[in-house]
Amino acid sequence: MNLKLRVWRQRSAAEKGKMVTYQVTDVSPDMSFLEMLDVLNEQLILDGEDPVSFDHDCREGICGSCGVMINGRAHGNGLFDDHPQTTTCQLHMRSFKDGDTIDIEPWRATAFPVIKDLAVDRSALDRIIQSGGYISAPTGTAPEAHSILVAKKDSDAAFDAATCIGCGACVAACPNASSMLFTSSKVVHLGLMPQGQPERNDRVVNMIHQQDLEGFGGCTNIGECSASCPKGISMENISRLNHDLLGALRAGARPKS
């Protein structure tokens, strides 16, 4: 099939960007979305033009590197009725029709400055983890694994939250560019495990504090985050985070300055 792509081109964070139109021909329905971009890039290189930069790595939906807005939707999630929520690398061209026009843009958020074209800087998410998204258990200090019992339902729910791949689609999809779904997934994962209890109050206040410092917006429970999440992380995590936050503040926990 033949497609018209309108792609965001921006040489660097300091320069202005714009949408540029490209034609791609002979696209196979079996190609992944990123393979279609590979074909475009090989053509651009041979034509002496600058290929389109985009982040990607595992191409099997788990590393969280890839992610673009496709026709205004993060990873294209929500555009196709019959397609499960997934990452850009797992979207295949059979979801499109010959003659389609596809808009391709980077994640848009203050906290995610553009590096080049479709690649953005998501290190703000790492700094949220640094502020408390861990259990302090230095190597060698661990007790025998079976000395800590975890109810299966807690372990399963913790796992569900822990499957977040940190791609940033939730932020890109949110009208407020809030990272609440990302932050809550880690707060809930660790908060459901007995090992996570000693730091539970400090964790939630520090992570929320860091999230604010990074310039992410506030959460107004719109739900675009969960609807765009390739791993289907539930909005329930945000409720649980709010519950933890309230408890922590009442207990006197305050962010590290």
Binding site: I135, G140, T141, A145, F159, A162, Q195, G196
Partner: peptide, 17 residues
């Protein structure tokens, strides 16, 4: 042991093991 202490959510049985 180390991974459990870090909170890695391994698959568990109903008894919590």
């Amino acid at each position: 042991d180390q991974c459990v202490a870090q909170g890695v959510p391994f698959a568990r049985e109903y008894g919590g093991l």
